[in-house]
């Protein structure tokens, strides 16, 4: 029998699709994929995931309204204490450059004492940080804090993150201490 060109073309597409399907299923079910956190992605894969993450967050965070009073001492104190309790183990603090988490997690948690924002990029950075803290980042060590913390508490931490990179160890200690 002879196929019309269209039918031949469709048959070709179908067999390539079937091959891809069988190939992916074999890959997934074979167990060949290295799942360990100490086995890093190919740089290209990592780049792709990063772009995916940033585009997704940028879109989702673009409507968030940043409070006008982030630069208030009360927010710094409340956010600082929470940061020290909940975040410093992964994101570090002045005088501490590594932890078990910062070394063992992959992707590794960025050192937030070293990421400062230019004033003109501040609003976008605040939106982005608020979104990340509230919702977390899927399949990374970054938890969603939204289910257990209200927006105000999250904004307090965003406020603290603005100033964190310039704090000395002493300033950090005073701002984050829970006791008087």
């Amino acid at each position: 029998m002879s196929l019309t060109p269209l039918k031949a073309y469709l048959a070709g597409v179908a067999s390539v699709a079937a091959l891809l399907l069988v190939g992916s299923a074999t890959f997934v079910l074979s167990g060949w994929y290295p799942m360990g956190a100490d086995e890093h992605h190919h740089p290209l894969t990592y780049k792709l995931i990063t772009v995916l993450r940033e585009r997704s967050i940028e879109r989702a965070a673009s409507d968030i309204v940043v409070p006008k009073d982030l630069d208030s001492p009360d927010r710094l104190l409340a956010g600082g204490a929470d940061y020290n309790d909940m975040c410093a183990s992964c994101h570090l603090k002045p005088g501490k450059n590594e932890s078990d988490f910062s070394q063992g997690l992959y992707p590794s948690p960025p050192n937030l004492t070293q990421i400062s924002m230019a004033p003109n990029a501040m609003e976008k950075a605040d939106q982005r940080r608020f979104w990340i803290i509230k919702h977390g980042i899927k399949a990374s060590g970054m938890p969603a804090w939204g289910p257990t913390h209200d927006d105000e508490r999250i904004w307090n931490m965003v406020a603290f993150l603005q100033r964190l990179p310039e704090l000395s160890q002493q300033q950090y200690q005073i701002l984050t201490a829970r006791g008087e």
């Binding site: 204490a81 002493q170 005073i174 201490a177 006791g179």
Partner: peptide, 8 residues
């Protein structure tokens, strides 16, 4: 919680 070290 620890106390603020205000001596600084």
């Amino acid at each position: 919680g620890e106390k603020a070290d205000c001596s600084a």
